[in-house]
């Protein structure tokens, strides 16, 4: 049981490390495969089912630049697991080094309350909330690109931009309560 800290280790040269947390372990593998294809920088991908991370690899584990919680909206458990994992992160991570990625948001079986709950969670932590189409190859490629965009900034590889700066622009806002025609 330990807190994961953003600045406890030194960064590597031209290296970005990303941690994908997903309780169902479905989407993270395909994402990881696509992420390591990146050639401009060395991307290390770490996978976890939930936090806290085990103690044994503590020494060899690189500094994690970005933590991504993948939430499958069709499963309540997936959301609860992500929520429970959050408290094992050092508060420093919430300055732009955490993001949520949601899958299956357009599914008919998703209760709207769950999407709202995820939005509220992301908004309360000032984190970006990304939506991904995990079932099509194009969707996976796109999700990878977007994660890399954030990761490069979080790892300090983009000049003139910091993680906090970017997250200030991309963070999720309060769930929209739009007075507009809806069809459900």
């Amino acid at each position: 049981m330990s807190l994961l800290k953003p600045f406890s280790k030194l960064p590597g040269l031209c290296t970005a490390n990303i941690l994908l947390v997903e309780s169902e372990e479905q989407f993270q593998q395909s994402l990881a495969d696509a992420l390591v294809e990146e050639t401009a920088v060395t991307v290390n991908v770490r996978l976890a089912k939930s936090l806290p991370l085990p103690m044994e690899n503590e020494e060899s584990r690189p500094r994690i630049d970005l933590v991504v919680f993948i939430i499958n909206l069709t499963s309540e458990l997936s959301f609860q697991s992500a929520e429970a994992s959050l408290k094992y992160l050092d508060p420093g991570y919430f300055l732009g080094k955490v993001c949520f990625m949601v899958t299956n948001a357009r599914n008919a079986s998703v209760p709207t309350e769950r999407l709202d709950a995820v939005r509220k969670l992301a908004a309360s932590l000032n984190c970006p909330l990304l939506f991904a189409e995990d079932q099509t190859p194009d969707g996976v490629t796109n999700a990878t690109e977007r994660l890399l965009t954030i990761l490069k900034v979080a790892a300090g590889l983009v000049p003139m931009a910091t993680a906090l700066y970017l997250s200030n622009l991309t963070r999720c806002t309060v769930p929209p309560d739009i007075d507009q025609p809806s069809f459900d």
Partner: peptide
């Protein structure tokens, strides 16, 4: 709405 926001198969169209 039916086709793009409320998909039966979660959008694996």
């Amino acid at each position: 709405h039916e086709e793009f926001l409320f998909c039966g198969d979660g959008g694996a169209s």
